[in-house]
Design a protein around this nucleic acid. Structure first.
Lengths: 368, 368
DNA sequence: TTTCTTCTAGAAAACGATTTCGATTTCTTT
DNA sequence: AAAGAAATCGAAATCGTTTTCTAGAAGAAA
């Protein structure tokens, strides 16, 4: 083990290949990377001709084209993006602003954006704002410098949206919290419907006392979820019981706390709609600690359909939030805007749906 | 719910603020975004003077500076990055190549890189290669176009490294698979030691029959883990039993399969070192299906310390892979290289450590 | 052969910043 | 008051590409 360690830590100064490469370039009489001008000189043509070859223009004869292409290949020429961007006014870059990077919730969104961008030959600049709107505004200012052709913002603050609208840069909002008045292009999910469906599902199983966790968050998606929950109860002719609507800031810990409180109620619920999957994990932990079995003694429904819900024990029934599509849709819309096209559907809402697994069953008879 | 839907789907054509903004700009007699030249004209100074103000140069008098700053503020001027990049030869961008985006394993690496880059005022360009080395090479070619000041590659292929070395661009490798001969700057973790520590921990608890899952993967980290496992058994004077070294490609499914096979052995193991946390999740599932309790009837150790291991039931004892530090260290090294400095420690290895939770206990007496 | 198209190719002007360096102006110093 | 030093500012070149726009060559039609 010690030998291993020594081997690992062997300190060998790394001298970049830069030096090596430069000398190789010198042999070809080129300082550093070749430019279009160098290539043109070597090929015995003019600079615009090389540019035309590079851009696949028609007004270049076949022999000339082939000669230039050969030289380009031989010298491994790649054109300088900065110069190109300067001239064309497009950078080929798109910015994505995320509240956090260490939250796996956003991962599929990122993935979706990356997919679409890659198909379009654009590259993705990633920025985390840490939920601070100052950071957000600061970055949007930075971004306004034409370093990027457009911008996607997840969970944008009001200020960020204003800044964005003022900037004139194409942008699309993901999970926009904003009021209904905002006409900015955005993509969201049917959180209300999700809450409604989750609750209705539990009602159909026969549950009468259903708790909701996650009352604390002021986020729009959270508000809609609880609204959906209430609407479902109402539609079923059941009264709303304040004691069953628990605080919760969408963390595992708050799911745990809320569950403990629910279990101390004179009449505990027979089912819990956890608001999101992280809180559902906390619910599981509390139930396990108290020796209650899921779903026999307590049905649980989550929201989001994070990857780990599949390997929870028992696998969690949850509402699927189409996060990959969120990213793909937003990116596709942004591409249109960048292209100067108009959006006939500027505000898109993607449907959620129930993923039935094994955390729910009808309530036991002696209850209620 | 129908009303809700209608509201969501209301189709309102979005006409970009671009048009609006342009007219506002026209009022100020500016076409589109102001340039340094515009600002200079308005402020009644020369272009270089504005540039000097922007760059905080000393040779500008206070009144001039203040006047220019006022105009800049008033017109919301931000300089064009492309022009700046062209002139300075630096783009302020760093590339990060990841094998996949939908794998939460890489998330903390990404986070670490982003942190360091943000502190340095650089921005992060993210690219996924989908484990395809052609993609990797293609992107590295793309990246050579000076669009980026440096590049970080996670799990680089041999070809990618060659390409990188040829490019002359500063780069740092993360989780380099390569042979020991490669002198390229890289950051890795002590996988061998992790395997050794995990196995030793089980041995100390009294286990004699310890299985390992994950023999299939050719990745260097996988090879080191099993090597560490064998070394620990060897150090304890125990024989290596081939039937306890299971295939496994580091997916949940393969952990599940391997466990089922292990349980069918005439003498099943009393502990399983799962190779990684995903496989450990599969182990849990198989054990649960067979009605075996963790840790009473089977101890389990994972590797990586993914977030969900904490909420597994019981919480998983695992080897922590310092992924955030992996990202931070690599980014810090790259910054040095970009700065033209030399690395006195070009090949860094970060330590792993055991995170003791509740998935292990001494074996039951009647076993072995 | 002449004239009119159609192809090719290149000269020159952008794109918007930074940098160099020389020309003023202002301030010290004697 | 004159000379030298220091501070301030701007003209022009530059980064590497793309985009006119024009000139000449080649081919077609008369």
């Amino acid at each position: 083990m010690i030998a291993q360690q020594l081997c690992y830590n062997r300190s060998e100064t790394f001298r970049g290949e830069q030096a090596q490469h430069k000398s190789m370039a010198r042999r070809h009489n080129i300082d550093g990377r070749p430019t279009i001008a160098q290539i043109a000189r070597i090929a015995g043509v003019s600079v615009p001709t090389v540019s035309k070859v590079l851009n696949g223009r028609a007004d270049v004869s076949l022999p000339t084209r082939e000669k230039v292409e050969r030289i380009i290949e031989e010298y491994g020429f790649v054109r300088n993006r900065a110069a190109r961007a300067l001239r064309k006014g497009k950078t080929g870059l798109v910015d994505l602003l995320l509240p956090r990077l260490d939250d796996e919730y956003y991962l599929p969104i990122l993935e979706g954006v990356a997919q679409v961008l890659r198909e379009a030959g654009l590259r993705l600049v990633l920025t985390a704002t840490d939920y601070k709107s100052e950071e957000e505004v600061r970055w949007i200012t930075t971004v306004t410098d034409h370093s990027t052709d457009g911008i996607l913002v997840v969970l944008p603050s009001e200020r960020a949206i204003e800044q964005l609208e003022r900037s004139g840069l194409p942008f699309v909002l993901i999970h926009n919290q904003g009021g209904l008045q905002a006409m900015a292009p955005s993509v969201r999910i049917t959180s209300w419907e999700g809450g409604f469906v989750a609750t209705t599902y539990l009602l159909r199983l026969g549950h009468q006392r259903i708790a909701y966790i996650g009352k604390t968050s002021p986020a729009r998606d959270a508000i809609e979820r609880i609204a959906g929950y209430r609407a479902a109860l109402d539609a079923a002719g059941l009264p709303l019981r304040p004691e069953l609507e628990c605080d919760g800031d969408f963390t595992e810990a708050s799911g745990y706390q809320a569950t403990l409180r629910l279990l101390e109620l004179p009449e505990p619920p027979t089912a819990i709609f956890a608001g999101n999957d992280r809180q559902a994990a906390g619910v599981y932990r509390a139930l396990h600690e108290r020796g209650l079995a899921v779903p026999e003694q307590m049905s649980v429904v989550g929201f989001d359909n994070l990857p780990y819900t599949e390997i929870m024990n028992p696998p969690l029934t949850t509402i699927h939030a189409p996060r990959l599509e969120l990213g793909r849709t937003a990116a596709t819309m942004l591409l249109r805007l960048i292209n100067g096209e108009q959006l006939e559907m500027p505000r898109v809402v993607l449907p959620t749906h129930l993923v039935e697994r094994q955390s729910c069953c009808p309530p036991r008879q002696h209850q209620g």
